[in-house]
Each structure stands twice: as structure tokens, then as C-alpha cells.
Design a protein around this nucleic acid. Structure first.
Lengths: 335, 335
DNA sequence: CTGTTAGCGCTTTCAT
DNA sequence: ATGAAAGCGCTAACAG
């Protein structure tokens, strides 16, 4: 069923059908009527593919993520998807299932199907990422600083976020903290660690231990024993790599009989939707997921329109104080 | 940059380039070498769109969901996306942002861009859904029973799930339960209500009140007061529409000083990833999200290959007993 | 205002 | 084994 069938049925030329389809105003109302009738009668639907070939674009963009189950990417995807839809674009998702080795191939393949690409690749080695980025333009990168590269980057200021979080904890009287690290190769973990360093420099009286963790709730549970040990060693507040880890940690700490925040304060990062329903409600650094998605779209759209590489943006996470962090108990207050 | 440019550069015909590109074996090794060299030299990448036009397919399928932030759809999307990727297909997502009125248009539009469609439309009126389904084939429907319609349906047996959950609670000694309802128009809420009815018929000694709720954590929080009232009225166990509601409810109940499961048992539905990290860990009915996505893909693939409408499947939720449900306290045990 | 014509970039007979 | 040529379904000049 093609545009010619409709044309034949309506007794006009394919061009006229095309005009009607595209709402060109310079068409005799009578023809418009006939064409529309034929379209309805035949149940015709235009081929977006053919149209794409002519126009040289898809009105589809791809987003590559390491894991669709991560609330951070979900939120960004949602924001991107909604913003793009506002301009008639759709989003194709490519989940690399955390397989860093497949990321480049996947990204290139996804890009070929679409007009532009959004890259979330927190673990890809920087050199490879740089090479890739040059190859798949127009592209916007999420959460990866790439100095001197001509690409819009929408990110989160993890360094500052961690500093602010440490400030909060220090303000509550804590002097001996612990940071449960994320995945070794995670770029945002590296930034958080820089945040830790900067906080240390700013607060000479403070100590921050590192406890190897991960990025999922299971990792948070697994690290609970180590956290308890650290607590025995004097740690009174712990910052988890992200909320998922914090939530897992919280669950396990409760089972281990640790009172949060009475004995130990716990904070997360990302402010996932569930953070505020945890027990106790989790203090976290909020990240504007949907807004990031929308900004990604804005950059992408400009790029696709042949516009300049717009300014990158770094969102400063906002502290959401809830119940899981509290003033340090007076020394010796613990039974 | 087209295939002809490569052909010119390599001094062969476009047809030969195409053959090389598609790995046809009947090509002189020397030509293969030259073409590959030219491709590399020119940095040529084939146009998937042109290829799609010729082949009449996209190798892309669309999935329409009411809300990308819902863990149920996220899991299905992930499963679908991975399974499809295994066959070289990608998934395009269309989030209708819960606007039921836009669903039909969105679905049709998304379908036009892709080779097939996955429809998650829990609130669309059945008549409209039936009409839509006929229009967008090949299509697979998720979580909506559509008797007598020639469409594969992958769903969850909510009726049975609720019955099993009630059985669990009754087995723990509870006789007066409450069900916090989901959205009025939700098809799966209707099924859960049927489950409630059947359970009632099976357990004449049991009573199940209905408390108007919703589908999100906020709804769970909002309904907490009503739940406490019901508890005063004798209810000892409550089933929430889903885990999100249960989690919100749990958080609020704790603040209201209600001991779960000591005074009141609480159960959810869906077994979202966070359920097992709640306080107390939430008893729930587990639903195989990723598996549903994979099955959806299997059906879709058969359909696209011109195969028959394969059998629909209904997954029976599995009871995950955790800490939030317990034996009913002896009468009068409450202080 | 409408129809004719020439592609968009690729694959695929069909000859050679 | 290779090339020429005819489309896939649509849009956009360009005539008329």
C-alpha cells in the first residue's frame, strides 16, 4: 500500500497525495476531500522509512545506558523521552548490560539508526570514549567530564556534592567518616573521591576512611559488616556511593542492631524516588534526573539543527536532609 | 557519503560494494580488500534508512508505556530490550506520561516507525484498545486480558496472585483484612479485586475491606491514616495495590507508631527491587519482569516472521514471604 | 493548483 | 565474479 495506490484511487497524482498528507495549503479542497476519503477507504499509512530517506533524518535519537534498571538513567531517559516527544522525536534505548566491551559497538550501531546519540558510559575508558564521541556526532555525553572535547556534556557535580554532604555531616558534629566506594572504574566514583579529598583539605580535623563497596543494594548489604567495624573504630557517619547502596546498607544495619542515625549516620547520593521511603528516611544529594534529560534534549536539538556546541552544564546536587543523618551522639553515649 | 563514493574510490561498482558490505562470498578477495580499504579511508557508514526502505523493515520495535518510572515497565523494557538485541533488534520507547487520551495516537505513531509494537496500556478503555490492537499488528499486549482477540498477551495472573496472598495471610491467622485499591481505571486493579472476591468466596470466615488508594508511594502515605482506622476497626493485615504503595504506607505507618508486622501485617505486589530492602522487608508477590519482556520478544519475533499468533501466557506470581507479614497477634495482646 | 520527474541510498535481479 | 539498471515509498523541484 503506497502513496500511488491512494493517488490512483483518488484519481490524482502521487504528488497531490503527498501534499495532502503534509498539509500543504495549496491544494484544492475537493482534492483534499477525495484524497482523505481514499486514505480512509484504503486504510493507508505512510512509510516513515521512505520519508526518512528523503529527508535524511529519522526524528529518532538513541540513548545508550549501562543499565536500564538504574534509577538515575531511568529518570534521565524519562526526561529525554518527554522533551524529545515535544518536538516529534522518539528515543531508542540501548542497554549494554554493563558490558563495557560492547559499549562502543552498541553506540555506533544505535547511532546509525538514529539522528543523534546520548551517551551514558560511566565506565568506558576515557581514551576510547573520546574516540567514540568524535565518531558518533551529533552526540551529548552524560556524566563524564571530557576536557577539551567539543561536545556538550550534561553532568552532575559529584565533587561539590560530596563536599556539601561532608559539610553537612561535619556540621552535625561528625569528625570521623567513611565513604563506601562505588565501582573501581566508575568515572563518577572517581569524582566523588576527589570530593572526599577536597573535603579533607577543607576540614583538617576530619578523617574519612574508604570502604570498598559497589553500586547496588546487594553491595550495600555486603559492606555492612565492614561498616560496623569502622563504626567500632570510631566512624560515626557513612556516605554511600549512591542511594541504592545506602538502602541496602540501611536494611542490613538494622538487622545488625545498629541504630541509624542514633549511633551512626548514613547518607546516600542521587536521591532516588525510594530514598524518602526508607527507614529511616534517607538523607541524600538530590540530582535533577528529568531535568538532565531535558537539557540533553535541548543540546541535541541544537546540534541536529546545525547549531553550535552549546555550553555544557554541571548540576550541583542539592542536599536533602532526612532522618538518616543526625548530630553525633555525645562521646560515650553508646551503651 | 554514499555507497557510490566508496565504489568510485575503490574503482568498482556500487553493487560490489554492497556485496562486500553484506558479506556475500562470491566476491574476489582482491575487490573485498580494495573496498574495505576505501570504506576505512573514507570513513563510510551505510545508511540504515535506505537499507530499511529496501528491506521493508526497520529491525526496531516500539514499546508504549504509561510511565517509564514504574519498576514493572522498566523491568519488562529491560528484558525486551536485551532479548531483542540478541536478534539485532532495538527498542524505541514511548512514554505516554499516564495521559490515556494520547495513548492511541502515540501507539499508532510509534508503530509507524517500527516493525512491531508492544502495548502496555493498563488504563485504556477496552473498546478503544481492541480497535487499536487490530490497527497496529504485529502487536503484543502486556497485562490486559482481551478475550477473543487474535493477539498474544503476556500477563500476570493478578486474580490468582491476590488469592495466594490472601491465603498466606489467612494461614497466618488473619481474618479481617483490607485491600488498598489501585487506580479506578486500572485493569490490573480490577483483576486484583476479582482476586479479592474469589478469596472471599473461598474463605467465608474472612472479611476484606477496601480502602481507596492509588499506585504510587505518595498514595501509600496518604492512605496510612485510613489504614490505622481500619486497624482500630479490627483489620490485622493489609494488602496494597502494589509495592510502591506498600512502601509508602510502611514509611508512614512507622511514623504513626504502628508496629509492622507486630500489630499489623502489610503485603505488596510486584516484588520491585526495593521491596526486600524495606523496613521491615516487604512480603510481596513476585512477578518475572525481565522474563515477561523476553516472552514478549519471542511472540513479536514470530509474528514479524509471519508466524502464527502464539499462545498467550499468564505468569502466576510467586509469594515472597519476608518480614512484613506475620502471625496475627493473640487477641488482646495489644497494649 | 496539479502533474511529471528526478532522486534519497541501498539491494537485487539480470545480463555479461 | 562483476556491472547495469530497476526499484523500495516518498518528497521536492519544476513545469504547465
Amino acid at each position: 500500500m503506497t502513496i500511488s495506490d491512494v493517488a490512483a484511487h483518488a484519481g490524482v497524482s502521487p504528488a497531490s497525495v503527498s501534499r495532502v498528507l503534509n498539509g500543504r495549503r495549496s491544494v484544492d479542497p475537493e482534492i483534499v476531500r477525495r484524497v482523505q476519503a481514499s486514505i480512509a477507504a484504503l486504510g493507508y499509512a505512510p512509510s516513515m522509512v521512505a520519508r526518512s530517506l528523503v529527508h535524511g533524518r529519522n526524528t529518532t535519537v538513541a540513548m545508550v545506558v549501562p543499565d536500564l534498571e538504574n534509577p538515575l538513567f531511568q529518570g534521565i531517559l524519562k526526561g529525554l523521552s518527554l522533551a524529545a516527544a515535544g518536538d516529534g522525536y522518539r528515543v531508542l534505548v540501548a542497554d549494554t548490560a554493563e558490558r563495557v566491551d560492547d559499549e562502543e559497538t552498541t553506540a555506533i550501531e544505535a547511532r546509525q539508526r538514529c539522528d543523534a546519540l546520548v551517551l551514558c558510559a560511566p565506565r568506558m575508558p576515557e581514551a576510547g570514549l573520546r574516540r567514540l564521541v568524535e565518531r558518533v556526532a551529533p552526540v551529548v555525553v552524560v556524566n563524564r567530564p571530557l576536557p577539551d572535547l567539543d561536545v556538550p556534556i550534561i553532568g552532575v557535580d559529584y565533587v561539590r556534592g560530596i563536599r556539601d554532604l561532608v559539610d553537612h555531616l561535619v556540621g552535625l558534629g561528625h569528625r570521623h567518616l567513611a565513604y563506601v566506594t562505588g565501582p573501581e572504574t566508575s568515572a563518577s566514583n572517581a569524582e566523588r573521591l576527589r570530593g572526599v579529598e577536597e573535603a579533607l583539605a577543607l576540614h583538617p580535623e576530619v578523617r574519612i576512611d574508604r570502604i570498598p563497596g559497589g553500586s547496588r543494594p546487594e553491595d550495600g548489604e555486603a559492606v555492612a559488616i565492614a561498616v560496623v567495624d569502622a563504626h567500632r573504630g570510631g566512624v560515626t557517619a557513612v556516605i554511600a556511593f549512591n542511594d541504592l547502596v545506602a538502602l541496602g546498607l540501611l536494611a542490613r544495619l538494622r538487622e545488625l542492631g545498629v541504630d541509624v542515625p542514633g549511633e551512626l549516620s548514613v547518607a546516600g547520593f542521587d536521591d532516588v524516588p525510594m530514598a524518602r521511603y526508607a527507614t529511616p528516611r534517607l538523607t541524600s544529594m538530590s540530582v535533577p534526573r528529568a531535568e538532565i534529560g531535558a537539557q540533553v534534549w535541548a543540546r541535541l536539538r541544537t546540534l541536529m539543527a546545525g547549531g553550535p556546541v552549546e555550553h555544557s552544564v554541571l548540576y550541583r546536587p542539592r542536599l536533602e536532609v532526612r532522618e538518616s543523618t543526625a548530630v553525633r551522639a555525645a562521646a560515650g553515649a553508646r551503651p
